[in-house]
Write a protein that binds this DNA or RNA. Structure first.
Lengths: 169, 169
DNA sequence: TATTGTTATACTCTATAACTATA
DNA sequence: TATAGTTATAGAGTATAACAATA
């Protein structure tokens, strides 16, 4: 093996490199396709249940969840960032929730261009009720993994998320 | 501890059970939220790149990917199942791809109600070009995980997917 | 001038239900 | 009658760009 001319040797190395690269590409693709299909399955199940049980859509639920975590309210721009959606959409979703009395816009004293969006009392109550059921659904859908496996996956996803937010942006 | 009356003891067990249940629910929710946000980040990045580089949408790309894997063609109903989308949508997406000459409907001799949808030669070429770049993007986006971690995650997702398709349907 | 948020518009995907043609 | 696929419709979410009000 080591008796081959260095040219050939270099070729071998290149071939190995290529092979490894291709294998890695395939592994990444396989991972992505599996992740996507799992996410789509869980997401559409939850979407359907939210609609049939509570007549609410996922983005609306998501906006309320964001506000639940921030009792002091969030600005439109902050909601936009957190929901990974452009401003116009947040306006639309907020409008709907405001009409239903679940959310309110409070003018900020310091910057009168900006609003602070908060859950109303009714919004808090409605969300608490939904969140509990929602959490049980999620637990049910992920019951195929035991505690250890769930933790392992959270760790892997955290690593991935970290690399995504560090590199890409 | 073991000197407590059995009533109290039973209470303790219940509390433990509840605690464990709540912990599990939280773990599942945490996992789901992390998985969702990772998927959304990767998906929107790929969606944007596909649009700006190739002027194609994700569902259209997905349909072509399905056909690439099945050179003999797929019926509309099969595409619908695989893409997890209703029939009307498949008709629409197929129409567009057919207009662009990337896909063709071939009437089935045996059952003249049904079509077999196939990639055209142009479709094959176009897809091959896109798939190569797409795979490189995915590899790049998942480069935060090493080979071992990717494999571990594929395994966990396979387990999850399996439990989802077994239990839920 | 820059920023916050809204409005107007258009596009894609989606589901549902009524429909046509064939089995 | 049942099935394969299409059509028509309506709705949600999305992005973009022009706009108003405030900083």
């Amino acid at each position: 093996m080591s008796t081959q001319p260095s040219n050939q040797h270099r070729d071998d190395q290149n071939i190995d490199l290529e092979t490894r690269l291709t294998e890695d590409h395939h592994a990444a693709l396989k991972l992505w396709l599996r992740m996507l299909s799992c996410t789509v399955m869980v997401e559409s199940e939850i979407r359907n249940r939210l609609r049939s049980e509570f007549e609410i859509t996922l983005p609306r639920f998501d906006l309320m969840a964001q506000l639940e975590r921030h009792p002091d309210g969030l600005r439109m721009g902050e909601l936009s960032k957190r929901m990974m959606v452009t401003g116009g959409n947040v306006t639309g979703i907020t409008d709907q929730l405001e009409q239903e009395g679940l959310v309110e816009r409070v003018i900020e004293a310091k910057d009168r261009r900006a609003y602070s969006v908060k859950l109303t009392n009714a919004g808090h109550k409605a969300f608490a009720r939904m969140a509990q059921v929602h959490e049980a659904w999620v637990a049910e859908l992920f019951s195929g993994l035991n505690a250890e496996q769930k933790n392992a996956m959270v760790d892997l996803l955290s690593k991935l998320k970290n690399s995504l937010t560090t590199d890409v942006s």
